[in-house]
Simulated scan of single mutants.
Amino acid sequence: MARLLIVHHTTSPSTQAMLEAVLEGARTDEIDGVEVVTRAALAATAVDVLAADAVILGTPANIGYMSGALKHFFDQVYYPCLSETAGLPYTLYVHGNNDTTGAVRSVETIAKGMSWHRHRPPVTVVGELSRADREACWELGAVTALAAAERAASRTA
């Protein structure tokens, strides 16, 4: 079975709504054979990443950067996962009150340093979530679950 890991720092109603939409998409009935594992950024470990076939990262934009909790996650997993997870598909969702640019850039810089593969552009939301934003998060969850299934299938073929 494929494994999709969702690592998130959920600190507000908006980031909670984004996480819930991502989870709904990842767990849709149309996708079989994917286990969805959710970890708070401060609880996720290298073992979680090493067992994943794809990763979704979720963070608020805090003072122009990813959350400290997500940065802590990267600090903990960087060296243990560096050579073992090259090519790992990942996606990202970010919520900000004013801007998300710095948060996206910081996550993408670290993921690139780990040789992870961005599966699709991030979902970014500034301010209140719209219905379209929730749908984009749902789609992010679904397509990343499919990426996990594809990676797992290619590794066993």
Rank of each mutant, 00 (worst) to 15 (best):
A41V: 01
G87V: 05
K112W: 12
I6D: 00
G127R: 14
T91R: 06
D75A: 04
A152L: 01
S106V: 02
I31W: 03
G102M: 08
Y79D: 13
L19F: 07
A43L: 13
V143E: 13
V34C: 05
E135R: 14
G25H: 02
A111R: 10
L4V: 10
Y93H: 08
R134A: 15
L57Y: 05
A132D: 15
I6F: 03
S130Q: 10
L92N: 01
S106F: 04
A2Q: 02
A103H: 01
G141W: 08
V77G: 01
R134T: 15
N62Y: 12
G113Y: 10
H95M: 04
E24T: 10
L82D: 05
R3A: 09
A111V: 12
A148W: 02
A52N: 09
V34G: 04
A21G: 08
H95F: 05
H95V: 09
R39K: 12
L140G: 04
V22D: 03
A86C: 08
H8M: 00
D32N: 10
A86S: 13
G58M: 00
S154M: 05
F74I: 02
I56Q: 01
V49S: 07
M114F: 10
I56T: 06
T10E: 05
V36D: 04
L88F: 05
D53Y: 05
G87C: 05
V125I: 14
G113W: 11
G113R: 12
G64T: 04
P80H: 07
T124H: 06
W116H: 07
N97I: 08
G113E: 13
D75W: 03
P80E: 06
I31T: 12
D32P: 01
I110V: 15
G127V: 14
A52Q: 10
